[in-house]
Structures are given as structure tokens and as C-alpha cells.
């Protein structure tokens, strides 16, 4: 299969303090324990991402509000996500996410 990159601008305003309504997890290599990035673990029903409807479980988070997560460790990436949701996200009333999604081959 191949991988496609998608950019979503998800409005936060209607969900107020509930944020994006998504839980994300860190994945790593079983053998080397090298960090392999942050992935969507679940999309909370009724949350902003659910209403927006485009995000999928297991999408890999590439960037948030224009800040790349790729060169970061999973922990640094989580911190970046937390920070962008709290201050920047709410100030802008929306969060911009770039995700990578595996597209199954024919």
C-alpha cells in the first residue's frame, strides 16, 4: 500500500473546552524501542474531530498548527500537541493537523 498526507483544520469552538475529542498514543519499534511517532488511538463520539468526521484511528500525526512532530521523540511530540491544544488551539479556535494515512494497495 502507499501513504497519503492529509491536512485538516478542525474547528474547536463548538466543543468549547472539550478540545479535539481525540486520544492519541505513542508507538515504538518492538525490537529497537525506537520511537515511531504518535497515532490516533480513539475518536471520542460527539467531540470536535468526530463531528468534523475526517480523522481516522491509526492516522499518524505529522504536524500540529504548522509545527512538525517528526524530528521529536514521542514524549516531545506529546508535549507539543498538549501545548498547541491548550493555548494556541483555543486562541485560534481551530487546530490544524497534518496526518499520514496508510492506503491499502489494490
Amino acid at each position: 500500500g502507499t501513504r497519503e498526507f492529509l491536512t485538516f483544520e478542525i474547528p474547536l469552538n463548538d466543543s468549547g473546552s472539550a478540545g479535539l475529542g481525540v486520544s492519541v498514543k505513542g508507538n515504538r519499534s518492538k525490537e529497537s524501542h525506537a520511537d515511531l511517532g504518535i497515532f490516533v488511538k480513539s475518536i471520542i463520539t460527539g467531540g470536535a474531530a468526530c463531528k468534523d468526521g475526517r480523522l481516522r484511528v491509526n492516522d499518524k500525526l505529522i504536524a500540529v498548527n504548522g509545527e512538525s512532530l517528526l524530528e521529536k521523540t514521542n514524549q516531545e511530540a506529546m508535549e507539543t500537541l498538549r501545548k498547541s491544544m491548550s493555548i494556541e488551539g483555543n486562541k485560534r479556535g481551530m487546530i490544524q493537523l497534518i496526518v499520514a494515512r496508510r492506503v491499502p494497495g489494490r
Binding site: 486520544s23 498514543k25 508507538n27 518492538k30 471520542i44 514521542n74 514524549q75 487546530i95
Partner: peptide
Amino acid sequence: RNLEEDGTVITL
């Protein structure tokens, strides 16, 4: 697959 969760989960 050679992938496992590293145990950290946060809600956004």
C-alpha cells in the same frame, strides 16, 4: 508488525 505502544496516551 514490529510495532508496539509505548504506553503513553493523552486526550486532546
